[in-house]
Amino acid sequence: MTLALDAATPRRRRMASVTYWDVLKWVIALSVTVVILFPIWWMINVVFAEPGTPVSINPRLLPTSLEAGWSKILMILRETEYLRAYYISVAYALLTIIGVLAVGSMAAFEFALFDFPGKRPLFGLVMLSLMVPTAVTIVPTYLLVADMGWLNTMQGLVVPGMASAFGLFLLVQFMKGIPHEMIEAARLDGAGHFQIYWHVVMPLAKNALVTLAILTFMRTWGNFMWPLIVAPNAQMYTVGQVVGLFNAPYSHHTVDVVMTANLLAAVPPLIFFLIFQRKIVEGIAMSGTKG
């Protein structure tokens, strides 16, 4: 009897401590979740349904035909250039990540840990470029890339995105926190400049590098404008552009096929998000931006 009383009392106390404000917070959180998840769920419902089933009326909450969905996915992968676009997008994202990390970390290493003439104005100049909207720089960058003969090439897609002022800023802020004594200890241990960068600073900046990699992936995968401008050749289409074709007014595709293309485009970021969920949240918190 005593035990039962003991067990019940804290539960009652917990219930009593729930305020109206708590309930309101939960309602708001749930509403936001529904608003965000519903389009994705709707997309899945449309894909996994028999072709021709009306989508705008008689809404369904559950997929009706997994088989039909699979056959649409296979049809898109087999009968369109979707797989090539996947390959281009993945290569574009991975090469950009590698480039951003390499260029950003080396520049940040110098800016954060060493003094050199003109350091402050140079860093200021780089930071100033953060203020300039992409739309302003896109034409000169295009002209530069075109002059170099890089239109419709992977380097044309990747190289302009490798120098990231935001990435530099993020890494500099992080590397400034590395104690100077550690660098000095490495110097006394006989490590050269590059060895200090590679063996000491890079492992210590791992969290910031992972954050930057994630943010760069999110930015690159979702980048529609730059690939559209610099790689107009169908051989160099990214997933974004291919999905754009499906969505085009005269594409002659039914809504369910268009939705399948959209779903396929959303799968990699979703998987990426599920794997790196914690790191993404930490990264966004660290960088103070949504990328």
Binding site: P179, E181, E184, A185, D189, V200, P203, L204
Partner: peptide, 18 residues
């Protein structure tokens, strides 16, 4: 510094955390 034949122990230890 690495060629002088000196080794230093720092106040903050300066150990590589990784």
């Amino acid at each position: 510094p690495a060629q002088r034949g000196t080794a230093m122990v720092f106040q903050s230890y300066a150990l590589y955390p990784h």
